[in-house]
């Protein structure tokens, strides 16, 4: 029994990482129907930007701030203006493919100009364990979980409770009508991309000490977050939390009780079941059949 509890707690810790990455994923989908296959690389890159700034002699806190700013500039503004804008009205797929190519590009740039080696990254949360219910939990994981929950609560409040949020939602759901009633649609969409860019930079600061700064670490993260987003409900920001935590726990339970060789299969079966019986996801809204 205590073993089960151990597994669940450890799974929640890993799941929190997936959740944090998945939040931005769902945000982009919800507000601009963008499937960002480079989301994992978006989390990998800011850590390297920060390492580069530190290499120039800046202290860690400054590097983090510069990294977040650079992330907003590159992964928010430039991504939106250069890649998303020209392609958005041509449907979901070409843009999704372009983000796939972008993922290759980011990985190669990091590998070529930084290193193919994994580098350690300073932790902003103190390294160590705390004991909860007799089980050692790393403070880093708690930090990730806290930020993920804060991000979701913040975003949900913003989207549902503020007039800015309502404008963002209107811009996302029906740009034409939104424009007519005076919503600055372009600015609203840009805002969501900037929020995502800041989120991935934060995620990068929190996750990299655990995963290490490595050019390929985005692959595993991106895919896990993508599946977490689907399971949780692609069109709801809070679904990302549920999906991420669920995938983390299920993965551990599958490895312990089903088979370590097939541990990756169980979340997939979960995904198929979810689509068959609850296609809107755990916490998602049913999407209208758009025909």
């Amino acid at each position: 029994m205590s073993n089960l509890l151990d597994l669940i707690v450890a799974g929640l810790a890993t799941g929190a990482i997936y959740a944090l990455v998945a939040v931005g994923f769902t945000l982009l989908w919800q507000t601009s129907q963008t499937i960002n296959f480079a989301q994992g690389e978006f989390v990998m890159l800011p850590a390297f930007l920060m390492l580069a700034v530190m290499h120039l002699g800046a202290p860690f806190w400054l590097a983090v701030l510069v990294g977040i700013a650079l992330s907003a500039l590159l992964l928010g503004l430039a991504f939106k203006m250069l890649l998303v804008d020209p392609m958005l009205r041509h449907g979901v797929l070409p843009l999704a493919i372009a983000t796939m190519a972008l993922a290759i590009g980011i990985k190669e740039v990091v590998k070529q100009f930084f290193s193919a080696e994994a580098s350690p990254f300073p932790s902003i949360v103190p390294v160590g364990d705390v004991s909860i219910l007799g089980r050692a939990i790393s403070l880093q994981s708690l930090g990730v979980l806290a930020v993920a929950i804060l991000a979701v609560v913040g975003l949900t409040t913003l989207l549902n409770r503020t007039s800015l949020g309502h404008q963002m939602q209107a811009a996302a759901q029906n740009p034409t009508v939104a424009r007519i009633i005076g919503v600055p649609v372009e600015r609203m969409i840009l805002l969501t991309f900037l929020i995502n860019a800041v989120l991935v930079a934060l995620a990068s600061v929190l996750i990299t000490p655990i995963y290490l700064a490595k050019f390929s670490s985005g692959e595993v993260l991106g895919q896990a977050a993508f599946i977490a987003a689907i399971v949780g409900g692609f069109n709801q920001v809070r679904g990302a939390i549920a999906g991420g935590l669920l995938i983390g726990v299920v993965d551990n339970l599958a490895a312990a009780y089903v088979s370590t060789q097939y541990r990756a299969a169980v979340p997939m079966l979960l995904l198929i079941l979810m689509i068959l019986f609850r296609p809107q996801g755990l916490l998602g809204r049913a999407e209208e059949r758009t025909v």
């Binding site: 597994l7 450890a10 810790a13 890993t14 993965d251 490895a255 312990a256 370590t260």
Partner: peptide, 10 residues
């Protein structure tokens, strides 16, 4: 690339 070894260690 596995991150979580809780199940394996248990």
């Amino acid at each position: 690339g596995q991150a979580d070894f809780a199940a394996d260690v248990s």
